[in-house]
Design a protein around this nucleic acid. Structure first.
Lengths: 287, 287
DNA sequence: GCGGGTCCATCAGAGATGCTTATATCAGGT
DNA sequence: ACCTGATATAAGCATCTCTGATGGACCCGC
């Protein structure tokens, strides 16, 4: 279970081919073949069916573990190396599309004003990639978002010890196409919308809704991206309803159940320095 | 960052000595020295101060990562191997001391009655060891417990993908020494007890209470064990108050905030078989 | 201050690992 | 059957990683 072997196993499974994986990894096909063989004899069972190359049941199980494992390994390395790094004057902030809402944009502006010499690079990435990037040291700070009950933490993929602070919670609205019969309401209950057609999006997955309210929520279009503009266009075109934070556009406030759009700030344990000051600036002012 | 090296690094840090770690691992002292040197040159910084042997800051950081990492590695291996294992007629259930309350004991009895030929081995372990044992395959099913808001999941150390099902939630009581002025009440609010002296126990850590209610909760005795009988004796002797599930003994019901003693069933993804049937028996009957 | 004991670092060599190159083997299509 | 595209195996070589021996730093009692 050498991580090295794990890495090539993942590559082979993804590529669907020993030779392709070998090329991607800079090995010969023979080396890859031997590495997979080594893994298989170590575990005593087949991980891949050949021709075509696809994971066996055991292999599928291993694949589930391998990703997080390799991520944590990179995270550990990054975290250790960070202790030696000098406080930089340039830092990277990774944010999910809906995470940098007006409130946080304003706080970010204030934070930058406090440290004029600090160069900030902002990067928008997928919601669940943020944690991975912070863990792996590819970003110094991260902002992710999601839908939860008030003051509940987000469910995030685990990428090692990391500080998580809720920095913003905002009302949700139901995004409806213009002219929708319910568009004039002043508030909607989720339970009243179980029979509607819903977009499946990463922000607002249908299983989450079903968990909260019960069965229903017919699936409309399944949208895999995270682009808010696109989502709103899809809603307008009648592909289905979805939930959005109030600041992301018009809609009817969600009255029940009590859910919020929550943004969390993610970062490794920070030594005092520019990064820590910016993190403080992004956090809600102490009441 | 070979796990092999990580393992010896942890061993050295724990043993506080290269030679002692070497003996424990079955290596020579020389090998251990070389392994640590390899890790240090790989990362480009010192992980241990020598004479006496103690982790540097970077080393301490690495130590935090190493444990969970190695655990997940073992978990992955165990999980993969499990796909090949035949359904056994003997399985091990790991339970925290307070997890197997009357309700669950009864469900366990019913489950065993359903499968008379199934031999069940029950093991009581520390609350956070349960997850590790299940992940590492040392137990087939696990029951942990903790204090949360109703229907909130427990905060558990992450040990890889694992199914978690809430199987029981029970009212909490404040355990008081006999003759305590508040002992006659019919209900107590946590906020009214911020100034009392509290036991610090793994089930009811004071930081958790402070998170929920605010500062206060003076620390009495710090009890590291998990033995309920001992805890009750400590309370009776006036070392401090604590929260217990109602079924664990007399006390005054906790009226606010709304908290429960929650028990969760942990298990890897189970193929249909005796283990899955027992897991079903332990889960609450569908309403 | 000196000698012995303890502990970690270093060195040299034996054996195991893990790569590459070359070749064998296999499955499927024609 | 034969060719093609693919994985498996074999042999050779470089590297890695142990062991055992030795060296150097520190602590302690005398």
């Amino acid at each position: 279970m050498d991580p090295h072997l794990l890495r090539t196993f993942v590559a082979v499974a993804e590529a669907g081919s020993f030779s392709a994986a070998a090329e991607r990894l800079g090995y010969t096909q023979s080396a890859v073949s031997q590495q997979i063989a080594a893994l298989e004899t170590d575990l005593g069972l087949r991980l891949l069916r050949r021709r075509p190359v696809e994971p066996t049941e055991a292999g599928a199980r291993l694949l589930e573990h391998a990703g997080p494992l390799l991520l944590r390994l990179r995270a550990a390395r990054a975290d250790v190396l960070r202790t030696a790094a000098l406080p930089a004057h340039r830092l990277t902030l990774a944010a999910a599309p809906l995470a940098l809402n007006p409130v946080l944009s304003a706080r970010l502006a204030r934070g930058r004003a406090e440290q004029p010499r600090l160069r900030v690079r902002l990067r928008t990435t997928g919601r669940d990639v943020v944690a991975a990037q912070v863990a792996a040291g590819e970003a110094d700070l991260g902002l992710t978002d999601g839908i939860t009950a008030p003051s509940d933490p987000l469910r995030l993929p685990d990428a090692g010890p990391m500080t998580r602070v809720g920095v913003s919670e905002e009302e949700l609205v139901v995004a409806l196409p213009p002219g929708h019969p319910l568009a004039g309401r002043t508030g909607l209950r989720l339970a009243d919308l179980v029979d509607a057609r819903w977009l499946a999006t990463p922000l607002c997955p249908l299983e989450r809704l079903r968990d909260l309210v019960g069965d229903g929520f017919r699936a409309g279009l399944d949208y895999q991206g995270e682009d808010v503009h696109t989502v709103r266009n899809l809603v307008a075109a009648g592909h289905g309803l979805t939930l959005l934070p109030a600041s992301a556009g018009a809609g009817v406030p969600l009255a029940a159940p009590r859910l919020v759009h929550r943004v969390e700030l993610l970062h490794p344990s920070l030594p005092p320095g520019p990064a820590a000051r910016l993190a403080a600036a992004l956090s809600p002012p102490p009441s």
